[in-house]
Computed example of a mutant assay.
Amino acid sequence: MTRPFLKMNGLGNDFVVVDARQTAFSPALDQVRAWGDRASGIGFDQLISIEGSQDGDAFMRVWNSDGSPVETCGNALRCVAWVLNPDASDKTLKIDTLGGPTKARVLRADAKTGTASVDMGRPRLDWREIPLSEDMDTLRLELKVGPYDAPLYHTPCAVSMGNPHCVFFVEDVSKVDVAATGSLIENHPLFPEGVNVEFVQVIDRDTLRMRVWERGAGITRACGTGACATLVATARRGLSNRAATVIMDGGPLHVAWAENDHVVMTGPVEVEFSGELS
């Protein structure tokens, strides 16, 4: 049996998207890994299944390229919104995820591209919500990388946007060894469920430069929930306004932490090609 799919991306963060609203889709771990392999398979950061929802327009299920399930994915939510509303009609979509419900609007759409906005809900800032393995101030984690008396990176901020994030503040993000540090922190005992790791350089109060190591996927060109977590972290530290452009390797994403405590991101969607999974 084969399953049709769309290969899509949001700012270079790429996905294989399967519409499973009519027929169940339950791939085995080794299948996900095989499809996700960029050398021998299709290649993607995450595999996305669009499923039915009793009280929403759809449920989005996510697997990382290593086969591990993940709670949610911001860039993928924009892609799913485009699939659900390719005509960009004036409506708000409710898309449920393991990380909680979200609301999305497609602002522009054509045959291959679009722009969508997603309300990711409120950031979760309590240590139990991240989660952490011990009670700690999530604004300034007691965490260091490198020599104790001269750490390379230290005192990050922790935020959950439906999935856990650890945000380090750096002077020059281009000099960060994202793979080495990200892989180290991803499986740190402080994060019992693993963690996504962001490195942010504050350009000005309206512009942030961020690079990311995604849990279960490694370095990606962009991370929507990571951009949201980064904006929340810098705003909490007083380093940025509550709305800013977060520039990632794949391009810019606009993120706003609204007065109702919800975080809203707006950015592009692209369809690369279609195919069939065997």
Rank of each mutant, 00 (worst) to 15 (best):
L139K: 01
C157I: 07
A58Q: 00
S68K: 09
S133L: 07
S133N: 14
W82Q: 06
E51D: 15
P86M: 12
D110W: 01
D87W: 07
V80T: 08
D110Q: 12
L93I: 04
P147R: 12
Q46R: 14
D119P: 07
I42Y: 13
S133G: 13
E129D: 14
K91R: 15
D135Q: 15
K91M: 15
V159H: 00
T155L: 14
V70K: 03
I48R: 08
L107E: 02
L77I: 13
A104Q: 11
V118A: 02
P131L: 11
L47P: 00
T115R: 07
L143G: 03
T97R: 05
A88M: 09
W63Y: 12
A158P: 02
K94N: 10
D66F: 09
Y148D: 15
S53Q: 02
R122S: 15
R78E: 06
R108H: 15
V83F: 05
M60G: 00
A158W: 05
D135T: 05
I50D: 04
G74A: 02
R105W: 11
S53M: 04
S117L: 11
G146Q: 07
W127G: 05
I42N: 07
M120G: 04
W63T: 05
P156N: 06
D126W: 09
E71L: 08
L132A: 02
G114H: 06
Q54W: 05
I130G: 04
G41W: 06
L47T: 03
L125T: 13
I130S: 00
I95D: 11
T97S: 08
D57M: 08
H154K: 15
T155P: 07
R128T: 14
D119W: 06
R128P: 07
K144D: 08
C79P: 13
T155V: 11
P131R: 04
L152N: 03
Q46P: 02
V83Q: 10
H154E: 15
G52D: 13
F59D: 03
M60T: 05
W82E: 02
R108A: 15
L152V: 12
L132N: 03
L98N: 12
T92F: 13
L143K: 02
T72Q: 15
E142G: 13
L47Y: 06
L139H: 00
P151R: 01
P86C: 13
